[in-house]
């Protein structure tokens, strides 16, 4: 007898979330409302992702949790411990060994496989929310496929800055129909959303929405013919592993302008480091 039901949530809650997940997969990119529960952590700490993870986990899974690419930050460590305690599942920091990966704001550098599920923590699921605050209106805009406003926003970026300035949570169109917020991943990660072999699930706890990308789904970042989408990153190589094509964090090292660029994906960086040292 354990102190918690398997994976914390009660069975009725899991059934409700599981039904939402199936409809989310059936209508890729559409935000399915669900009755988000209070979790033993504050909203904004990944309650949506945690509820989705709790509903897909099986006792045989091996869970990895990352926060901005790192396995060792507070949010990632707490969520990993939460599931070690409530679901007794194995955990790992290796992308290749994980069957379920919960992520905050990154997609791992190592390509995902068909036997993996990526669960995103989502703060604001509605891509049109900052353009139109009324839920009744954004819902109607999705129904009518009325996404002109989003293009106006991107155009205003170009008019003001000379380029599309949106650097994260860059809007995408899923399977030619719904415009979706990919959560605040850097736009560097956007190309990995498309045609991904893994199942991608998105959970927004405070906003009570679940959405999904089935594997091998066409996901296009919105752009213009004369201003095509560009996946950008800092023009440096990682100071630790030397990788020239991974997403980098900028770290200020002193008060004299010293800077270091390091891989944001700690597992990717460590694996390269180990291989290099061996």
């Amino acid at each position: 007898m354990t102190d918690y039901n398997f994976a914390y949530l009660d069975e009725q809650t899991k059934r409700m979330i599981r039904r939402a997940l199936l409809k989310a997969l059936a209508i890729p990119g559409y935000q399915v409302p669900f009755a988000s529960r209070e979790m033993p952590m504050p909203y904004g700490w990944g309650t949506g992702g945690v509820q989705v993870t709790a509903s897909v986990l099986t006792p045989e899974d091996r869970l990895k949790v990352i926060d901005q690419g790192a396995d060792d930050t507070t949010n990632a460590v707490s969520i990993r411990k939460f599931f070690e305690k409530t679901a007794q599942v194995a955990t790992t920091t290796r992308t290749t060994e994980a069957t379920v990966i919960q992520t905050r704001h990154r997609i791992p550098e190592t390509p995902l496989g068909e036997d993996q599920i990526l669960v995103y923590q989502v703060p604001i699921p509605e891509p049109l929310r900052f353009l139109e605050p009324r839920e009744t209106e954004t819902r109607r805009m999705h129904a009518l496929e009325e996404y002109g406003l989003m293009h106006v926003k991107l155009y205003e970026d170009i008019a003001r800055h000379g380029a599309i300035a949106t650097a994260y949570a860059y809007p995408v169109k899923v399977a030619g129909r719904y415009v979706m917020d990919p959560s605040p991943i850097p736009k560097f990660d956007n190309p990995k959303l498309s045609d991904c072999p893994a199942i991608q699930l998105f959970g927004a706890g405070r906003e009570q929405r679940i959405y999904a990308l089935p594997p091998y789904t066409d996901v296009v970042s919105l752009d213009f013919e004369d201003h095509p989408f560009e996946a950008s990153k800092a023009p440096h190589a990682c100071a630790l592993c030397g990788s020239g094509d991974s997403y980098l964090d900028e770290i200020v090292t002193d008060d004299a302008g010293g800077r270091m660029f390091l891989c944001s994906d700690t597992d990717y960086c460590e694996s390269r480091h180990e291989r290099g040292a061996a």
Partner: peptide, 19 residues
């Protein structure tokens, strides 16, 4: 054993619906 049995069954259904 309702919780793990349902979890395994759902994973199969989820995989089927996703693929």
């Amino acid at each position: 054993d309702a919780a793990p049995d349902a979890a395994r069954a759902f994973r199969a259904i989820l995989t089927a619906m996703a693929r």
